[in-house]
């Protein structure tokens, strides 16, 4: 097999492989780890990060990234909490709408106004944080008067799958389908691979990039809704480290920072890997600080993964003249 094919496959095997390894090792060392209950717990906790990582994957596919996802999720959860009393469960839709708006802001700034992704998403991150503080009495968690319709959602399962995880799974199925089978999905790959070439063949690169950021915003908003369902409160200041973790999950899941390469399910496995690792360390009584250090080291390694794989599996570049 040619080097590039191996490279192509290998980057997407890291996440599932790592997850398997973690579960096996943890299952052996930590009692009760591989129980259904524990796995469901991991799945439920992964619900939020999965949505954020999915959105992150899409924008990384078009050569960008989004550090505002955490703040947007927090802001959306606050919006949901505030409107719960008046609107009931439609407040969740409002949360998604909030995400859509921020996603649109990012998309317009980056795709149409040619602002660098780091600056644009930094801008919307600060704006989301500010907005969340504004509507929530300066950052206090917002508790709706009547959250009974949400009670127990965090603990329910459908066919063994945690209910909270279902939105993420549905979104992943949709995104996977679009990427493989829909023209829009192929356009996303084309724009990520070579934006100029994409324009030359008639792809509206700006529109495609905008759609990627809109989707990322929607998923962040949805994550906020899930957060609200999970905790029953709106948390305006939550989510600072989620943006980092979503990037980590996406990269571990084989998404290339330079764009043009991405696959949905490995990203999900990346999320599960992070959660599984955290849970394992938690159960073992390892200090959360050490867990954080481990997570940081994993990100460092994930950065070198690309080059490591290339080194391991080939001695020359595909052209022969390296």
């Amino acid at each position: 097999m040619k080097a590039s094919t191996i490279n192509r496959q290998a980057r997407f095997l890291v996440a599932p492989g790592g997850l398997l390894l973690t579960v096996c090792v943890a299952g052996a060392l930590v009692g009760d780890y591989a129980s259904l209950g524990n796995l469901q717990n991991i799945g439920s906790q992964a619900a939020i990060l999965a949505l954020l990582a999915l959105g992150q994957m899409l924008v990384m596919l078009v050569r960008g990234f989004d550090i505002s996802v955490g703040a947007v999720a927090a802001c959306s959860s606050t919006v949901a909490a505030l409107t719960m009393d008046s609107l009931g469960t439609s407040s969740l839709a409002l949360a998604v709408l909030a995400g859509l708006l921020f996603g649109g802001l990012n998309g317009v700034l980056i795709a149409y106004l040619r602002v660098q992704p780091i600056v644009a998403t930094l801008c919307s991150m600060i704006a989301a944080q500010g907005l969340a503080r504004l509507i929530s009495d300066d950052g206090q968690p917002v508790v709706p008067v009547d959250a009974s319709s949400l009670a127990d959602l965090a603990f329910q399962n459908i066919a063994g799958i945690p209910l909270l995880l279902v939105p993420a799974l549905i979104c992943m199925l949709l995104v996977g389908l679009v990427l493989k089978k829909f023209t829009l999905g192929r356009h996303l790959f084309m724009v990520g691979c070579d934006p100029q070439a994409a324009s030359l063949v008639g792809v509206d690169s700006r529109r495609v990039t905008l759609i990627a950021y809109l989707a990322c915003g929607v998923f962040a908003g949805l994550a906020g809704a899930v957060l609200f369902c999970k905790t029953g409160t709106g948390l305006p200041t939550e989510g600072v480290s989620w943006a980092l973790q979503s990037v980590a999950a996406a990269v571990i899941g084989g998404t290339a920072l330079q764009g043009g390469t991405a696959s949905v399910w490995p990203v999900f496995f990346g999320v599960l890997l992070i959660q599984a690792l955290e849970t394992a360390l938690n159960i073992q009584g390892v200090s959360p600080f050490i867990a954080e250090i481990v997570m940081g080291l994993i990100i460092l390694v994930a950065g070198g993964l690309d080059r490591l794989i290339l080194r391991l599996f080939s001695s020359t570049t595909p052209y022969g003249e390296s």
Binding site: R186, F189, A197, A198
Partner: peptide, 8 residues
Amino acid sequence: HSTLFNQL
């Protein structure tokens, strides 16, 4: 310059 898509 090439206008092909490497990943397609």
